[in-house]
Design a protein around this nucleic acid. Structure first.
Lengths: 190, 190
DNA sequence: TCCTGCTATGCAACGAGTTGCATAGGCAAT
DNA sequence: ATTGCCTATGCAACTCGTTGCATAGCAGGA
């Protein structure tokens, strides 16, 4: 499990409460590691019990109190140890790929609007990444080590989205070709 | 959950036993949807109970009997229904991306050999994809609908691996630059 | 001969992840 | 006034996924 490590990294970059972490996982980090607030709260409690992180109660006005966590020494040590362990091969779950192969046994044209929706959401994400690139990394010469590593991960996201967009266009062309051919075949029976 | 649907697609493409399915998930399908034999057996039993698939006991000599499953009518109907439902946004788990950001709080050079190993395994996978492309899709003009859809998924895999290789080179260059800078800084203290 | 490995299926236990719901105050709009 | 949304945390129940182990016959090599 690496959720604990993803949380540690996030807390090292910036301390925060469970709620704040959940929102970070919905945004930036969440593009590389997803988690719900339930998971995060549970893991935070375990990590605090293990001494990986330290909590501080913070009173707020007009809002519920929050517990702000930050990474502690044992947490940093655990992270360093994890870094030296080999990663297990990524488990991939490409639902759309399964659907595309499934379309062979049904009507391929039924998938077109679905793929178009995917295309749009990937295009929107790419735009957000590019915006973040301009905003967070304007001066390439002035980046410290942490920023350089954040930036190379962002570049990976950008390239992934570009590649995915091109592939989805390829998929759409294929589906439309098959839908067209299917129509022609139907018309032969008239 | 889409494991059931991935299994249905696989059985529609070619009937098989639980064991055979598990091996397919280790190979071709497994690049887009992973599953262990335990999961597969459990889901197969449920699907058979629901009438989605039909089983036939097959005696073999020199080997244990096997149960060969094939997709039944209700299974096809369930698949068609699923095709019309929108997919939930893919849950991504990019452990390496987390590690790269974590490296900012430890020694970046400790990650280099890890990334190199990843690079090699992606290069090997790309080679296998390209080999499969030559073997399974030599005559592009003669592909039926099913093959065209399989091929467009394979093209996605190929482009993904190419993109990943390029990104890992980018990551390696960044890590080496940081490792070099770290060494130089150390040497200033001598 | 023994050990390893392959085919083929399965149980039991655990850990990870999801979903629904609850609390509780504040804010803004209808 | 009521409705709905936001911050902030949490319980309980469930499903999904993983790991370890078991059986059982056959094949091949040390």
């Amino acid at each position: 499990m690496a959720l604990e490590h993803a949380i540690l990294v996030s807390l090292l970059e910036q301390p925060g409460s469970g709620y704040e972490l959940a929102r970070r996982f919905d945004r930036s980090i969440g593009r590389f590691w997803t988690a719900t607030h339930q998971q995060i709260y549970r893991v935070l409690r375990r990590m605090e019990a293990d001494g990986w992180i330290a909590a501080e109660e913070v009173a707020q006005d007009g809002r519920p109190d929050k517990k702000v966590y930050s990474a502690a020494g044992p947490g940093r040590a655990a992270l360093a140890e994890w870094l030296r362990e080999p990663v297990e091969p990524e488990t991939v779950r490409h639902e759309l790929a399964v659907k595309i192969r499934a379309a062979a046994f049904d009507d391929p044209s039924a998938l077109i609007s679905e793929v178009e929706r995917h295309r749009e959401s990937h295009a929107a994400l790419l735009a957000r990444y590019l915006h973040g690139e301009e905003r967070d990394f304007p001066d390439l010469a002035a980046l410290d080590a942490r920023q350089q590593l954040q930036y190379v991960v962002l570049r990976g996201g950008i390239e992934y989205e570009r590649m995915t967009l091109a592939w989805l266009d390829d998929v759409l062309a294929t589906l439309r070709r098959l839908a067209g051919a299917g129509d022609e075949q139907d018309s032969e029976f008239r």
